[in-house]
Amino acid sequence: MSKIKGFCCNYTMSVDVDALKEGGLVPEGLEIDRLACTGRLEVPEILDAFTNGADAVFVVGCQMDKCHNLSGSYRASKRVRYAKKILKELDMDPELLEMFFADRGHSEPIVEAARLMASKTQGNSQDRDQ
């Protein structure tokens, strides 16, 4: 079972992750940190998630133009881009880290993001073979 770590902002994530797991909607290995704002997320925290055993990491913030804190999700996306670069330098697949955007209170994009990331961890070995 692959371990997926997600960082969501307070406004995008409304449904409890345990309830989603109970409903069989998200991978079992998903863990979500709910932040006051994804703009608060620092690059070391993203990298720490990998260090702590995550196979893939994703960040979900507000839609860029509708961010509750105006530029929070813009900052987050910039840091994700930077972290991806570092992953590349470390010889890791930068695809294992992604930024997503969701409408306020809509849980569907988060679930989709978690699934997409899970499929990436599973499909990675196959991709390389091809």
Partner: peptide
């Protein structure tokens, strides 16, 4: 909220606990 064809609800009980 709809998630993958299912409906997600969140609520707060009088003891202050959040539930989904």
């Amino acid at each position: 909220d709809q998630v993958d064809g299912k409906l997600a609800l969140t609520w707060t009980t009088p003891d202050g606990e959040h539930h989904s």
